[in-house]
Structures are given as C-alpha cells and as structure tokens.
Amino acid sequence: MNAPSLETPNPWLLAPYSVQERKAETADTATIVLAPPTGHPPLRFEPGQFNMLYLFGVGEIPVSICGDPTDPEHVVHTIRSAGRISAALGGVTTGATVGVRGPYGTGWPIEEATGKDVVIVAGGLGLPPLRPVLLEMLRRRDRYGRIEIIYGAKSPRDLVYYDQIQAWRARSDLRFQTTVDTAGPDWYGDVGVVTTRLPDSRFEPKNTIALICGPEIMMKLAAQALVQRGVDRNAIWVSLERNMKCAIGLCGHCQFGSDFVCRDGPVVRYGTVERAFAFREL
C-alpha cells in the first residue's frame, strides 16, 4: 500500500485547489488543471495513483492523476461525465474551487519495467491514467526496451489528448497505434477492437511488462491476448475501478475479491485478479 502522502498527514483533509484551466477533450470529457492553495506543499504522486476530488454541495469521487509527475504544482485530471458528480467536476470553470485529498493507491511498476519491453494498452478513458507512466518512461527512455502503445476508443470522436498523441506518434523511439471500434470515411487510421492491434506489436513476450487500463472487459480481453502471446500473467498490470468512499481502506466500499481497491490497488498484477475477473459480474 502507498500510504497517503506524508505531506498530508490527515488523509481525510481536503485542500481547496483552484481550477487553473479547463479543456474539453470530447463531448463528455474534459481535462482540468488544478493549482494548490498558496503555501500548500506540492502534490507528489506515483503514476497510477488517484485523488479524491470533492465539489462542495455535490460530492466526492476518485479520479486518476493524469499529469506530469515532475510537475506536482499542476494537478491534472481528465474526467468523463458518467453521472452527477463527474459531470459537475468535468464542467467546472476556471477559478472554481475543488477539494483534493490524496494521492492514494498503488502505482504502475516503473522500476520493475527497467530493462524490459513495455506494452501499454489503453481503452477509452484508460489513456489518461497511463499518461504519467509514459511521460516518466520517456524521460528515462534508455532504461526500457521497445515501447508499444495501443489506444482504442469507440469512435474517432472519443479519442482524448489529440495533440499529445500526435507528438507521441511522431517519435521514433516508441510505437503508438490508435484504433477505433467504428469510423466514418474521413478516418484513415485503424478500425477494430484493441486486441486486433496486438499481432502487429513488436515485443519479446518473455521480457515484457504490460500495463492495461480501461473498462474491465477490455482489460480482461487484452490480458488474455497477451498471455496467449506468451507474456507472464504477473508481468501484466491492470488498473481496477470500484466505487469508493473513504479511499483509505476503512469503509469496504471498494472491495474486489479479498482486497480493497483503494488500498491494494488500483494498479495490481493481472495474475492476482484473473480469477475475480473471470467470475465477477463485469
């Protein structure tokens, strides 16, 4: 477990951050940049961790941190409107106040990936929680073997981080494949579910770490395809999502099998949750 940051000794304590910037990503998704209150310590986080975001009079939800880990003065979140609270948070305007507590949970295995090929599979809003790990790996590019990224969305309209993706695609030291489930004639990219791009990906299965984030059914299928390709179950990492309340392992709201997602996750080895993936209602 990653203990709540030492700089926020009381894990319940909300700090009033202000919305510095808001950018619409798609019709229902926006990225917000939050600045800490004056004098507040910067929010250092491990890629993969999440914050609890609170909007006064509306409520609180867990949201992954999507910004650059070396820039803790700017706390970045990409939020899709799934219901009342996420809609309100995604719709905040510049200058508004958002309560932040965190960071919580486990991070992606950056150290364990050293010396290995890295396969990143993101589905839909699974790309934002993977962005910090990719930024971190690119900063120390020589530590890793091949880096293959497959990003799938429902349609071209649902792709987030358009400019960032163009920049990643232009790099020669990684391969970024984008695919959508369906598209119109103006789309020149790939069409098909994310797993259809795996056969095209180049990596050494026995020396690979895979990071997968997206809806559970997509993570399960991608993990199965990677296992079939020869990647060890325990070298595949997934990020779980469950409804949360306390986010500090007390209330039991986020139980997944025998674990609590807020404390033992969200990032876990696929090998440890494979059975739960198979039998739980998806």
Partner: peptide, 8 residues
Amino acid sequence: QLLDLHGA
C-alpha cells in the same frame, strides 16, 4: 464491437 468495450 457490439458489446461496446469502451462504453462501460
């Protein structure tokens, strides 16, 4: 594709 993997 029909299951809409991303709609979850």
